[in-house]
Amino acid sequence: MAGTRNYDFLIKLLLIGDSGVGKSCCLLRFSEDSFTPSFITTIGIDFKIRTIELDGKRVKLQIWDTAGQERFRTITTAYYRGAMGILLVYDVTDERSFNSRIQYPFSGKQADMPDIRTWFSNVEQHATEGVNKILIGNKCDWEEKRVVSVERGQQLADELGIPFMEVSAKSNINVEKAFYSLAADIKKRIIDTSKTEQLPAQGVNVSEQNNSISTMGGKCC
């Protein structure tokens, strides 16, 4: 692949959050600038690519989209490790996706309703240390159905110590901004602070996980 890259950096991002919060829709909006209300459920894992420009550098974003249901966590957590940035997505019209007070009826355990805190602790557990995160409240255009206020979103983000943004994939509000801001944070963390020209060493340990991406780029030549 040497010599064929037309980007300066490759950044790998991961979308997580409960099923139906609109992860795939956010990704579709960002990567293809389109929206479809009846998207199919995501099964397994896939990614999309978009190259953006940050401070005059061409940054290629490889954004991985996962199935939301807790049931598939054993599969999806395998992808946490290679991610340099993670978008934790909830649905402002769905309390459960944000904060599930519900306990499991028969065993008392939480099961298929992972809320943001659950996702966050999964990230802490499985992702690379220091990975950048952002909290995303989707469907903010749908005011009449809103159950999670901006304030509560912000409060949780503050508590977790991560940036926060409300977006709407449908109305194209803030989706670009969210991805750009996360990418900028990552660039700041990894690239700008890196004294050497070697980007990947800090970002992803390629050899460690057999599913991580060995095309992770260094500087373009």
Binding site: E32, D33, S34, F39
Partner: peptide
């Protein structure tokens, strides 16, 4: 995966469906 805007001529925010119920892409896209 590809964006709608491009050298092929048609673009614009409306090219993607907000009303289509087709589970896949709308025909234009």
């Amino acid at each position: 995966g590809s964006k709608i805007a491009g050298p092929m001529g048609i673009q614009g925010p409306n090219a993607a469906s907000s009303s289509s119920r087709d589970a896949g892409m709308d025909p234009v896209t």
